[in-house]
């Protein structure tokens, strides 16, 4: 038990210490580390991200709390959040004055520009996994007209095994909700809470409107 908590603490300490670039990057890193433990399915990880994001507060600490709890209950949650917060806290406390003095140093700037390029790759990976598991999904309960079939493999009707793999079906509602949230955030600059509400509203309403009638 104690060893397990210690390993959770060090795991999250590592995440907190080596992740330059702010909260959203830590989401990418935590996501990959949680996935690497092999204990959780894509769906469970998506649920963790939803819970951590849909609640106020820094996503990084929220997500480590949720992930730690899934690993080892409340004690695990506490270990995870302490691990995530330790390094940033100490770095700011001890190094902030030194770093501020060198903010305009070109070596410093190129170091962090390079880091920001790496960060884009890391965040893109978890964003893409989230899109695959939550946006491009097919729901057998929505009507066929709401399902788009994307065929990458040519026009013939006959489906070979390979072609069926290329053929992905997904329902439109989550795609619309996803796009609406992103556009509201970036284009209209609304408060994130409202953007999230808009997306949730679209997916709930769409689900109500287009749900197949149950066979009587």
């Amino acid at each position: 038990m104690f060893r397990r908590l210690l390993s959770i603490y060090t795991r999250f300490l590592r995440i907190g210490a080596f992740t330059i670039g702010g909260g959203i990057v830590m989401l990418g890193v935590i996501e990959s580390e949680v996935r690497a433990t092999g204990e959780f399915s894509d769906d469970e990880i998506a649920d963790m991200i939803v819970l951590a994001t849909a609640v106020p507060g820094p996503i990084a600490t929220n997500l480590s709390f949720v992930a730690g709890r899934a690993m080892e209950g409340w004690a695990g949650a506490l270990a995870a959040i302490l691990g995530t917060a330790t390094a940033p806290f100490l770095v700011i406390l001890l190094l902030s004055s030194i770093i501020i003095d060198h903010l305009t140093n070109p070596w410093m700037i190129s170091f962090f520009l390079g880091a920001s390029a790496g960060v884009v790759a890391v965040v893109w990976n978890s964003l893409w996994k989230m899109i695959k598991s939550s946006v491009l999904v097919s729901d057998p309960n929505t009507t066929a007209s709401m399902t788009v079939a994307l065929s990458i493999g040519g026009k013939e009707k006959k489906e070979s095994r390979l072609r069926r793999r290329c053929l992905c079906r997904f329902s439109l509602i989550p795609v619309v909700a996803f796009a609406a949230t992103a556009v509201a955030m970036m284009g209209w600059d609304v408060h994130p809470f409202l953007a999230l509400g808009l997306g949730a509203l679209i997916s709930v309403l769409g689900d109500r409107l287009f749900r197949k009638e149950k066979a009587v």
């Binding site: 819970l51 884009v120 992103a182 970036m186 994130p192 949730a200």
Partner: peptide
Amino acid sequence: AFQKALRPAVAGLLLAAFCTLLRPI
């Protein structure tokens, strides 16, 4: 069910955050 409905919206939020990271480079 609500958590599931929230998922695409959260993905949209993350896309917006990703774009703010992408813009400077």
